[in-house]
Design a protein around this nucleic acid. Structure first.
Lengths: 111, 111
DNA sequence: CTAACGTTTCGATCGTGGCTGAATCAATCA
DNA sequence: TGATTGATTCAGCCACGATCGAAACGTTAG
């Protein structure tokens, strides 16, 4: 059992962040989800479109899309029979922020 | 057993990157390893020092350190009985580059 | 030399996340 | 209406990675 050895020996301010950061990183650290995000970087795509690029079963893709939804990295909108997936506007920002602060200050500049 | 449905239907130039990116991201997407990297962001630490911050068994910590080594995120140096771990100089750069290109161009500026 | 310490490696177990097949839902078309 | 398509949900299986106990290794201290 030992259900909560979650390495939070002392509740420092950063530990609160850790859990959320790991949800984001685990969401990205999967070949299917990584490919989906990469694809959505080009703009909104319906599931059928994503399926063409990411060759997995429909239900499996749906499973991975749910993980991305739960992580708040994508949003959905139904359009007729289809469901469009769009990258969350703050996806890039939240992902880079989820990386362990591993060195110098980061400055993000969007073109 | 369908051992290689690794979603590389067509060998595009990006697929080559994907594998390396996922190794980095899976390395970071773990509570122990995330905490270790965070700690190493402050500078070189010996294993015993890391153990104090990340409360896991010594052999388990060693296992996770090996994952980070294999990913090229950290380097080691023996100092007497102890082994010092140091963040790879390009760790930050490689990690941010491993994220799916999810939007605008990123410009990194180290302070 | 032996002993103790810090760290790594080995072998085996266990739990969780990814995968599958079938059922279900939501929307359009005949 | 029933049929078809796109997408999701459900239940169960299975492989892989995280974890554990014990042993082995390298180094320093007695």
């Amino acid at each position: 059992m030992a259900e909560s050895i979650r390495l939070e020996s002392s509740p420092e301010r950063r530990s609160a962040t850790q859990e959320a950061a790991l949800e984001l990183l685990t969401a990205v650290a999967d070949p299917v989800r990584w490919a989906v995000l990469e694809r959505l970087g080009d703009g909104t795509r319906c599931v059928c479109d994503l399926r063409a690029q990411v060759p997995v079963a429909a239900n499996l893709l749906s499973y991975h899309l749910k993980v991305l939804r739960d992580a708040g990295l994508v949003t959905t909108a139904r359009r007729g029979r289809w469901v469009d997936y769009t990258l969350a506007p703050d996806a890039q920002e939240r992902l880079t922020a989820a990386l362990p602060t591993v060195g110098a200050i980061r400055v993000e500049v969007a073109s």
